[in-house]
Amino acid sequence: MARADTLARARKLDRPDLAYIVRFASADGVKDMELTRTELAEAASWVSARLSEHGLSAGKRALITASGYEGFWVHPMIKGLGALRVPYGIAEGMGWDHRRAGVFQRELRPDAVIGLTAETLEGLAGAADLAETFRATSLILARPDALPVLRGAGVPAFAMTTVGPALALECPARAGAHVDSGAWRLSEEDGQLSIAAGEHRRSALAPTPLGIAGRVVTDRCACGNEDPRVLLAQADQR
């Protein structure tokens, strides 16, 4: 059977909307929740809007550093970049793949580096000066453990983190990392964050304490976004 015929028949098959089982740490242990293809598409649209606020647009280039188990946020990031017509490269977020990240940084010269980890930075710092490495990079979205390393080297960076199953991205106003209010409901009690499924979400998640120290800010951000913002204790360093 020709490949075209096979693909044509495959398109007629029932396609479950379930895309991922997301596993995340909570205050009471590991939790699982479903993530549908519809929710992924909505997340991609949200991510695209956030990246656009940082000035990413057609013709610019990006590097993503992530691990395979993080597909639940990598997929919307890839689709979001695609919607903006931004080509990208991917390197593993573990330290052993820092050389690939370094090659992309030198050869691709990305306008944005998304998801930088402290492990990647440790490897890169052994071969080059971090300030020089990222001098021409206009946007860096870094994990909480990488932020103090970058800022200590004089590299301006924005926070990118997961809050349980949710993705949080800091805006240009640097007033905290936004979380999609349609997908998630955030709350805090005694300085600890909790999360639940939002009204637009089809996958259920009851209010779940995460065991993450931080604050939730709900007033309108200076960037104009009304999505709530999280300020993590270890990342709230301006």
Rank of each mutant, 00 (worst) to 15 (best):
P148D: 03
A168L: 02
V47F: 08
Q105N: 10
R174N: 00
Q105Y: 05
V149Q: 01
D190H: 08
I90G: 02
G182Y: 00
A43P: 04
R151M: 04
A159P: 00
R202Q: 14
E92T: 08
E132T: 11
G59W: 06
A131M: 04
P148I: 00
L193C: 06
A142Q: 06
S67P: 08
A91S: 07
A101W: 07
A146D: 09
H98Y: 09
G182W: 00
E92L: 15
A62H: 10
H200Y: 08
I78D: 03
A66M: 03
R151G: 02
L108S: 12
W73F: 15
T120F: 01
P172C: 00
Q105I: 13
G102N: 09
V103G: 10
E122D: 12
L130S: 13
T36Y: 11
A112F: 13
M33K: 07
H54C: 04
E34K: 06
E34I: 08
G176L: 04
A177D: 07
P144S: 07
D227F: 07
G198H: 05
D219F: 09
Q234T: 05
V113K: 00
F134E: 05
A25Y: 09
Q237E: 15
S67T: 15
G214Y: 03
P209W: 14
F24S: 11
G68Q: 09
S48E: 12
V216K: 11
S45W: 02
I90L: 11
G95M: 07
L116Y: 02
S52N: 15
A197K: 04
H98G: 07
A101T: 06
S194R: 04
T161V: 10
G191V: 09
G82Y: 13
S52T: 13
S52G: 14
R135Y: 07
E42G: 14
A166R: 01
K79Q: 14
A10W: 08
V163S: 00
S138E: 15
R9C: 06
D32M: 11
L7R: 12
S57H: 13
K79R: 14
L84W: 06
P172K: 01
T36G: 13
A166N: 03
V149P: 08
